[in-house]
Design a protein around this nucleic acid. Structure first.
Lengths: 196, 196, 196, 196
DNA sequence: TCTTAACCGAGACGGTACGTCGCGTCTTTTG
DNA sequence: CAAAAGACGCGACGTACCGTCTCGGTTAAGA
């Protein structure tokens, strides 16, 4: 197998970094469709040729840049499901309001609708974002706050769905009271005897 | 004064219809960013000049075409909140799975993020989509199934949020059981004494 | 055969006048290629349909408007060929410097190069412009200042050619001295025994 | 620094040549206003983008193409002013009749009337065209055939003005006799004592 | 140390799309 | 029935971005 191994040229790294930085900047500001390879090239000082040398297509670069959007919060451990959920959901609400990925996410969702590679990336991104909720639900299950036959995926959908809905669909404010009501609902549901 | 009444050239209607039809077609297939005026012109047989005569900008045409996406279901009246919700949510779930607006909606959300006119259109579209839920909640309130101090907007977010989440964010199947669980949760929450 | 005859509607005259006025205005300012039917229509308040009813083509309108450019000076009669020529040429020089047709004339010449109708119009225009020179040369011939075998067309070419040359080709100033030198040359040539 | 020397892509020359060739062709046939970038692009096989990469504007391309119109004759040296002039003027007369620039020149004059860059180009073109006359007049001055106080610019105007006049203004034939008469006139004038 | 291969920037190139303008034809309604 | 209003198809304008390409120059590795 001869050479290979660790021949990552410093120049390569520098170019890639510059391109990703600039792509990320444009992405945050204008969404996926607002990223232009020509502009990235001009602004980053890395030539288009080089960009296409490192990423096979615009999509590939975008995927790479999007992956850096995730800033996953730590899973809290307040001792109760209600406490944990409140904390997590408030953190999420705050990010939905301020984080730059919040304005970009719909463009990813949209692209994912038609591009399978982006779909995979979005799935990964989503999984990372939702991981803390998984942790919190598992803790709660161990504490017996969630009936063992309840699916946590349903609880997750019921927890974050309403927040996403308000951020992107109804464009309503997400206040503390709303978050607490959601948390309360989840706690009730989690412990309730199954309807059926 | 002047103008008035019935001087609508037949050609205008024909052109507008042809353009909207073709725009809608492209929109359904490729999303907002996949609509090209040149292609619409070529395919519809209506010249670009004429298109821009009827719509001041690409956005305006898109908005017009998007507005035709809505196929709002009738509000059911089964006699109970649970029944109504189940019906509505199942209808929604089915549309999310099959209707062509389902693949396009994220692109509208995305465009709305940066274009205020599209934002307005999206708000109108959203309002129309959600109207049946409003009706159902009002009926339930009259029946006393919802405590009078409960905000129906919160109930709405909790109802449809989880479905939207599964369709566009987690990309999970939305089965009957899930929908029923949601409905059950809403019914419980609606009648529950406020947490505070 | 009924009505017809002399039913020149007042409106027709008003429309034609308004169109010609506006066309002339644009013509003077921007030359032939700077006249736009759409703009004439908008500015004159006469609809395009009406314009095309009265003139079969853009060219026709242009020709009509160009014909109004001519402001032919009276033929002087100072009693001598030199005096008459000086007067005429100075008048011409002054018009070349200031009259608005001076900036437009090349566009007519150019159009004439490719459009036979415009060529005819230009010929007429030219003939009108040059008429006073014909008169002056005839007077001189009667006075015996021009040998009878001399062609006045050659004298004309030698008289005005140099002025045109300076106005449009070399773009030099045309001063009194130059004009007088030309006049002197013509006088000499007119009376000289033929070279042959 | 950097860049330097000889990194001329072969494609550049090929594109430029093809574009200029086609532009020149259209120019000769239809005059300045008859040149369309889209058509040049289609016919030459060079994309519009590339054309605008090499010339900042339609005007610039036109100027470039026009500059290739000049086919300046050598200055003759027959030993006498009359001989030289006859030769030059006959050559000019022949070109006015047949050369393709003859049909295009008015459109340049016209454009120059309103576009300063084209004005500069026209001045250069004119200077090149007239250069042989300058040479001939200088020779004659050295031979004493032109009085030293005579301005050669006036002689030039009187020489070529009448020919231009006949070609573009009166559209008369320019025959040998006419040319000889002009030459004779110039010779006389050049040697004559100043009028003043 | 010196090649030599990989890397790089600059930018040419052909496409496709944008939104605007002018032309000359056509249709409809008003005075 | 002329006029006004303006829809319509056509084709040109100049710009932006895409992804591919050619061209020389630079840099880092290994022989």
């Amino acid at each position: 197998m001869a050479k290979t191994f660790k021949n990552m040229d410093k120049r390569v790294e520098r170019s890639k970094a510059a391109v990703l930085r600039e792509t990320y900047r444009q992405l945050s500001k204008n969404g996926i469709s607002g990223v232009s390879i020509d502009v990235v090239s001009r602004t980053s000082g890395v030539s288009k040729t080089t960009i296409y040398r490192h990423w096979p297509s615009r999509s590939a670069l975008l995927i790479d840049a999007c992956s850096r959007l995730a800033s996953v919060p730590m899973a809290p451990d307040t001792g109760s499901l209600r406490g944990d959920l409140c904390k997590l959901l408030k953190e999420l609400a705050s990010q939905l309001e301020t984080a730059n990925w919040s304005a970009v996410y719909p463009s990813i969702i949209d692209a994912a609708e038609r591009d399978s590679e982006i779909r995979i990336m979005q799935a990964a991104l989503h999984k990372a974002f939702m991981a803390p909720f998984g942790t919190v639900f598992n803790l709660a299950k161990n504490r017996g706050e969630i009936r063992s036959n309840k699916a946590t995926t349903a609880l997750l959908a019921t927890s974050v769905g309403p927040l996403f809905y308000r951020r992107w669909f109804s464009r309503e404010k997400i206040d503390g009271q709303f978050v607490e009501a959601i948390a309360e609902t989840i706690v009730q549901t989690a412990y309730a005897r199954s309807t059926k």
